Each structure stands twice: as structure tokens, then as C-alpha cells.
Amino acid sequence: MVAARRDVTTDLAPPPCQAAGVAQRGVTVVTGAGRGIGAATALHLARAGHDLALGYLRDDDAAAEVLASVRAEGVRAVAVRGDVVDADDVDALFAAAADLGPVTGLVANAGLTAHLGDLACTPVDVVRRVLDVNLLGVVLCARRAAQVMSTSYGGAGGSVVAVSSAAATLGSAHEYVHYAAAKAGVDALVVGLAKELADQGVRVNAVAPGMVRTSIHAAAGDPGRLERVVDRVPAGRVGEPPEVAAAVAWLLGDEASYVTGAVLRVAGGL
């Protein structure tokens, strides 16, 4: 287990809206922010003016690069190393975010497939880790977000967006049915938690990407998977992380103010 730690770099001056006497703007927490969809989402949100707390697991160099890129957009940001399946690490991430201002957004993006193959051939420790990160990690982050955002707990309200997957409804047979099952759990969480928090100022939604060009496939041992299976996609191509990031940002923002309990598919027709 990787212990959470706060990024202590504070040399970037706060933007004008953070000046003395001006109310702080909300902070958005992004997990899995060191790569892929998480990194693209962090940059998209920074360009839209979000201050950010970036959670990542272990790649310090990648996290530092994302941190530098979002700060270059003129927002305040911290990067916090930790594991979303560890409640103490989740608390540390949200505490670091609160140091910047009130937490009003969560993008629960951290995830992995870890292995490709039939369930019968998938080691139990891999199954457990995939279920933990992709479902328990989202539950723990959403739980903490509810505690800090909900008006019934004294929060200012906000928005949660979980990153699910088209696999939740496709099943992903012969590839990662355990991952698909975890993402189906995320979809159920979104529906239930949205109802639970609807009268407390918090919206809860998800995006469900299809085949997206990230390193998740290489990390699972199949770097050529996208090229091999792209013909399954009706749109005829794989998606790019910024395309998913734009959907996440819309769900977080005021234009989606009447949207809660929704799973927005970003999958090229899958």
C-alpha cells in the first residue's frame, strides 16, 4: 500500500479570484490523474478555471508533468500520491484539496484492467485488485465527496462524475468480465447515490468510455489491443482522452445542472 502524501510545492501565485477578500472558487478532485483520461480531464478542467487536487498511485514523474501543465493554465493545484482503495489515502487527498478551497467536484477516474483473458484463467489476486480499484475506490471517493459537498454536512454542494466503461453493459467476455462487473457496480452506485444526494446540492453522474487510446491496455499486457479490435466500433476509430474529458467537464458544470443519475456513453456507437 502506498502511503498518501501531499505535494508541498507552493511557489505558484494564486490567480486573481483567490486574492484576499474574494471568495474562494471550488476545487475539483481528480483521481488517476497521472495518465490517460485522468490527465486529459485535469488539463481540460484547468483550462476551464478549476483549481485541482490530482490523485495518483505511484508515477511521481508523470504526476509532476500533469501538475506543471495544469498550473501553467493559471490555476492552483496539488498532486497527492495514494491509493483509492485506502480510506486514509482518500481522506488525505480530500484534505489537500480543502487546503486550496471548498471541494465542489470529484472525478473518480482511477482504474485498471490488469489482465486480459477468460475469468477462469485470471488469478484471484488480480480479480480482487481490479474489483477494489474500479469499484471500492470509486465508492470510497464518492463517500468522502458526499461528506464534504453535501449541504446536510455543511458543504456548498457540487458534482461527482465517475468514469465507468462501456464494458459495464457489453460484458467483455474473454477479456475482463471482472472489470466489466466492477464498472456495472459503478453505474449502480451513480443511480443510487444521485437519488440519495439530489436534495443536498450534489449531482452524481458517470461517463462510460469505449475503446480509448490510453496506456491501460499496455499495462494489462496487450499494447496492440486497440488496433486488433477497432473494427468493433461503429464509428470506425478509437476515442481519444480529450473527447472523454470534454464529456466529464460538461457533467461537472452548470450546463448539466438538471442532470443527475445519468451514465453518458462516450464510445463511438458501442
Score class of each variant (00 low, 15 high):
L226A: 01
G221C: 08
A267M: 10
T260H: 03
L197P: 01
G32E: 12
S150A: 13
G111A: 14
L116N: 14
G201S: 00
R144L: 03
E243S: 03
V138S: 07
L45R: 08
G36C: 01
Q200T: 05
A46R: 10
L189G: 06
A19I: 03
A220F: 06
A79Y: 04
V138G: 01
G221A: 06
V27K: 12
T28M: 10
P241W: 05
V103C: 06
G185R: 02
Y153C: 13
E65M: 12
S165N: 08
A92N: 00
V84G: 08
G49V: 03
A95P: 00
G171V: 01
A64L: 12
E65W: 05
H115G: 04
V230K: 10
V212G: 05
V2G: 11
V190S: 07
E240V: 04
R213Y: 04
M149G: 06
A180Y: 03
G268Y: 05
T31R: 08
A194M: 00
P242I: 01
D222S: 14
A180E: 07
L93A: 04
H50Q: 15
A194C: 00
G253C: 09
T10S: 13
V70M: 12
V133K: 10
R237A: 03
A247C: 09
L189E: 02
A219E: 15
L12V: 15
A33Q: 11
Y56F: 14
A206S: 14
E73F: 02
L43F: 05
E227T: 07
A95M: 01
E196M: 04
A166L: 14
L197W: 00
A23I: 01
V66I: 14
V138Q: 09
T260Q: 04
V204A: 09
T214G: 02
M211R: 15
G111R: 09
A145T: 05
C141T: 15
A3W: 11
A48G: 08
Y258C: 07
A220T: 03
G38T: 08
A184Q: 05
G155V: 00
T28Y: 08
G32I: 04
V2W: 11
A249M: 06
K183G: 02
A246P: 02
A162I: 07
A235I: 14
R225S: 07
C141Q: 10
L193D: 06
A4Y: 02
M1V: 15
